[in-house]
Amino acid sequence: MKSKKSIIEAGVNTLQLEAQAISGLIGNINEDFVRTVELIVASQGRVIVTGIGKSAIIAQKIVATFNSTGTPAVFMHAADAVHGDLGMIQEKDIIICISKSGNTPEIKVLAPLLKQSGNVLIGMVGQLNSVLADYADLILDTSVEKEACPNNLAPTTSTTAQLAMGDALAVCLLHARDFNKDDFARYHPGGSLGKRLYLKASDLALRNEKPLISPQAPVKDVIVEISQNRLGVVVVVESDHILGIITDGDIRRMLEKHSNLADIMAKDIMNTNPKKIDKDALALTALEVIKQNNITQLLVTEGNHYFGIIHLHDLLQEGII
C-alpha cells in the first residue's frame, strides 16, 4: 500500500495534468470550431456523435448535453455503425467523430464510410496526422501532451480534453441560439430547476384537499375539519367569499385562553388577513411568501375566490426548496 503522501501527490498530479490539458485547448478554439458551431446552428438535421471505447462514453455525454440545451443529437457507436447503425444517419445530419488517435481499426473503416454519405464530418481528434483528421471536413483539436496515467496508457487527460471541448461546443451552441432559462425548463420539466421555472401554485393546490367551514361552525367542527384534511388549516367561507383562515396554531392559542368552548365559533378565532397567492403565480413565489412570513400553509386564490391550499411539505416534495 502506498503512503498517504504519495497518494495525495498522485491525485494532485492528475488534476494538474488535466487542468493543463484543458488550458491547452484554448488555442484550439479557432476557425474550425466557429464553423462547426455555425453549421450545427444552421442545420435542419441532427448531430450524430460517434466514437469507440472511452471516446464513445464521452460521445454519449456530449449527446446528452446537446439534447438538454436545444441541439438535437444522437449517439452512434463506431463499432455498431458498420453493422447496420449507419442507417440512422439522415441526409441533413452533421457527424462528429471522436477519437484520441484517429487511427483505431474501427475509425479507419468508419471514416471513409461517413464521407460517402455526403454529410459534414467533424473530427474531434487528438492526433492531426491521422486517418480521421484526413477525412474530416473540420477538426476540433483535442491533442494532449500525455495521459495522467503513470504509464501514459489509460485515457484520462485525453478524455477530459474531449469532454471539455464538447462542453465548449454545447455552450457556444446555446449562446448562438439565445437559449434561456425558460427553454431549459422545457427540456428539464422533471428537474428541480425546471419546476422552479414552470410549476404553478395551482399545480400544487389541486393535489390537496380543499378544507372549508362556515363562520358559525363550532370549534369542535373546526378541529375535525383541520384533522381530517391534514393540512393544518381550514378556510372560513361564506357565500363563496373568503372571510379568513384558522390554523392548528390558532386552535392551540385559543385553548390556552379559553376553558369554555361551547359558545366559540369559527369566526371568533379566524385570522381575517391571511397570506395568499394567486393560482397562476409560480410555486417558487409561493415559497418566498412562506419564508418571508414564517408560515407553513398558504391560501391560493382565483380572483377573489378560494382555490386551494399549499403546504410547505408540497414544496419540499417537489424539490423546490
Score class of each variant (00 low, 15 high):
194 G>V: 04
213 I>K: 07
204 L>P: 09
202 S>T: 11
206 L>A: 14
180 N>K: 04
207 R>H: 07
206 L>R: 15
207 R>Q: 11
201 A>Q: 06
195 K>Q: 11
213 I>C: 08
195 K>D: 00
202 S>R: 15
208 N>W: 03
191 G>C: 01
187 Y>V: 00
223 I>E: 12
212 L>W: 14
185 A>Q: 01
227 S>M: 11
208 N>A: 00
227 S>I: 06
213 I>D: 07
184 F>Q: 03
215 P>I: 01
198 Y>M: 14
203 D>Q: 09
183 D>W: 11
180 N>R: 08
187 Y>Q: 04
202 S>A: 15
223 I>A: 13
186 R>S: 10
195 K>E: 01
224 V>T: 13
191 G>K: 04
201 A>R: 05
222 V>Q: 10
177 R>N: 01
187 Y>E: 04
176 A>C: 10
206 L>I: 15
226 I>Q: 08
223 I>V: 15
218 P>M: 02
177 R>I: 02
210 K>Q: 12
220 K>S: 14
190 G>I: 07
176 A>D: 11
190 G>K: 11
201 A>L: 09
221 D>G: 02
178 D>L: 05
199 L>S: 03
182 D>A: 13
176 A>R: 06
229 N>L: 06
207 R>I: 09
203 D>I: 09
183 D>T: 10
177 R>S: 01
194 G>F: 12
187 Y>K: 03
